[in-house]
Design a protein around this nucleic acid. Structure first.
Lengths: 362, 362
DNA sequence: CGCCTCTCTGACAACGTTGCCAGGAGTTTA
DNA sequence: TAAACTCCTGGCAACGTTGTCAGAGAGGCG
């Protein structure tokens, strides 16, 4: 009782200079500001929030104290007190560093900003557990709404959040079984238009290199390819289709299979841009270079040795549309869940415009 | 009261049917859970937080009520109550959709995740006002720390936040005048090595296309270029240097100037990858194609018609290092602010390995 | 001078959670 | 049998803010 305690001085009434570097002094609260300005707590609140009904002289004193103490309103406390609205939304992406995701991210950010909302973003890394963890962390912070690029798993846990009043919009992939809005690309139609483009150049043996079939977009795009081939009367041989994702080794082996034998494919359609790039790298090592159309545009596709023909999605528009939809819901718009499908666009650049080589003489 | 409700059972005690879609029923609180489980509020808290000292049978009842009501702990309230630690950090980038930024973002995200922290991210769009707004929004949410890619403006407002205990780490650019850690690339050295590379190929008239000189990295890289040229005894003519940023029109005009006259440049060094790309696009429209070395790597640089030689930074490592530094500070590490400079790496790919064309006969 | 209105201000409760403490039931020890 | 101890449980205050309400003056009006 008589001895002075050893160790850091107590926070709060700490003697001056006790702030070594990093986490010293405690943040001043409105109470501190009130004391410094010689006014009541509520008056500080009023000034800080720009409410009317405070005499200018008083307000000045408060503002001076705010500036002097470096006061910043604690939004957690504010939001807790106010209840409902937290002016924040969450965004769950596959991977924030993926170009598709990051463009979508930026678009959502702009819309959120325009609505005065803070945006929380995270990467699920295509891992359902991680997606869930992120989503629930956002919900624990009481975001007003969520925009999710769903992984391939169950999403029943989202139902509870939705029931609790969190608006949810799915983007790029739907949330089957949940009454959530969804904004998707026209994956089937886009894939189909890519295949049609190759068919129009005279190709008949067209391979398809897609992503893992559990992924919604991969399945849809495969479907579009098959439809186009069927409508053109081209039977698809089983080794023409590979759904192994963009792994370079897998792509190499798949190309080996497609290009072997007496009826090698003369063109390939790629289900996503990473696969397109993997095929391009293979081009560098092979004599046989099938024509190529890729799904999903990518930067510099036009500056490559052979510029790449793509079926372009519009990630910015996807993100913007999803965010606008979310904010309309948050503004109170009721009604059945919407499904919005955005068009794709074929951009011919060269890699898909070559005719098939003539049949080799037997 | 007489009619049976249609649809899902009510959450909380809200009247059935008051939930059209979106923001209906209130979230249940621990109080609701306690009532449902027939226990005290504090017992719910204990169970939810996995504290010991609750009989298993009681805990089960609580867990059942939690599941049935869809309770999620309100982290805002929790953090408010607990004071200090919010287990969250903020990241302010130029633009989340920029490849450099988004890779850095992902790296920071991984470190934050490993430390159990939530990450808030936003784009300043290189606008000081917007950076400030974002930063203060993060501080209002009481992030434990901030990682900032600073814009070119004053940052005195950060001093107050730092004094209040928010740890700050600058990345990519320093925060002059603030006692904050910083993680930078070796911009001068990298730029210098790029220029040296061109000098070794025999180039003597080397142009420099940089970013706006107000940007720290742009100034540093220009300095590296000038040093290399000076050390090689090459006087830099004023029209060889253009600090207009990556705007395509500006790049075209700058190239016009550099390539005109009797002593056109035979090579250019680009201060960032967007400028490199702009130069590449110019290549497509010109007969004169100076050799090119770009600062900052970019995807597919190796697959272009002429693969591009670059001085590569490592955005992932920048982000990871900055985040690790931040979390060390949050863990209590004291000591003077550190300045960490990460090396760059020259990657020769072709565009910078051609010798200058012989002097044209007069 | 009394009454009313108007302006400005502050006290108080509450948001949902957790830390501290106390109390009751059951068991062991003196 | 009382005391001491353990185990489990709940009450209460407090985090920092805002909404509600009431009170203190000042000024106007009959």
């Amino acid at each position: 009782m008589a001895d002075e305690p050893i160790g850091p001085a107590p926070v709060g009434s700490a003697p001056v200079g006790s702030a070594p570097l990093g986490q010293p002094t405690v943040r001043p609260t409105m109470k501190d500001v009130a004391a410094a300005a010689g006014v009541g707590l509520k008056t500080v609140s009023r000034v800080v929030n720009g409410e009317s009904g405070v005499r200018e002289a008083t307000a000045q004193r408060v503002r001076a104290a705010v500036a002097q103490l470096g006061f910043r309103r604690n939004d957690s406390a504010r939001l807790l007190r106010q209840g409902r609205h937290t002016s924040s939304v969450g965004l769950v992406l596959d991977d924030v560093s993926d170009p598709f995701s990051s463009l979508l991210h930026r678009a959502v950010e702009e819309v959120a900003r325009a609505h005065g909302s803070l945006l929380f973003t995270g990467s699920s890394a295509a891992d359902p557990a991680r997606e869930r963890e992120l989503t629930l962390a956002f919900c624990a912070r009481r975001v007003d709404g969520l925009i999710v690029v769903p992984t391939s798993a169950e999403h029943s846990y989202l139902a509870q959040e939705m029931a609790a009043g969190t608006a949810v919009v799915a983007v790029d992939r739907p949330l089957p079984g949940l009454a959530a809005d969804a904004v998707l690309s026209d994956n089937r139609g886009g894939s189909r238009s890519g295949a049609d483009h190759l068919l129009r150049q005279g190709h008949r043996r067209i391979g398809y290199l897609g992503d893992l079939p559990g992924i919604f977009t991969a399945a849809e795009r495969l479907h579009g390819y098959r439809q186009a081939m069927a409508d053109a009367g081209c039977a698809v041989q089983s080794h023409w289709v590979s759904m192994g994702g963009p792994d370079p080794v897998g792509v190499r082996l798949a190309l080996d299979r497609m290009l072997a034998g007496r009826h090698p494919v003369t063109a390939v359609l790629c289900g996503n841009n990473r696969t397109s790039v993997a095929v391009l790298r293979e081009w560098g090592t092979r004599a046989q270079r099938p024509a190529l159309v890729g799904f999903d545009d990518f930067e510099l596709a036009d500056l490559l040795a052979t510029p790449v023909t793509v079926v372009a999605q519009d990630p910015i528009r996807l993100g913007r549309t999803a965010a606008q939809l979310l904010f309309r819901r948050l503004a109170g718009e009721r009604g059945r869940p919407q499904l919005i499908e955005l068009p794709t666009r074929l951009i011919p650049r060269g890699s898909g415009e070559s005719a098939p080589a003539p049949e080799p003489a037997r």
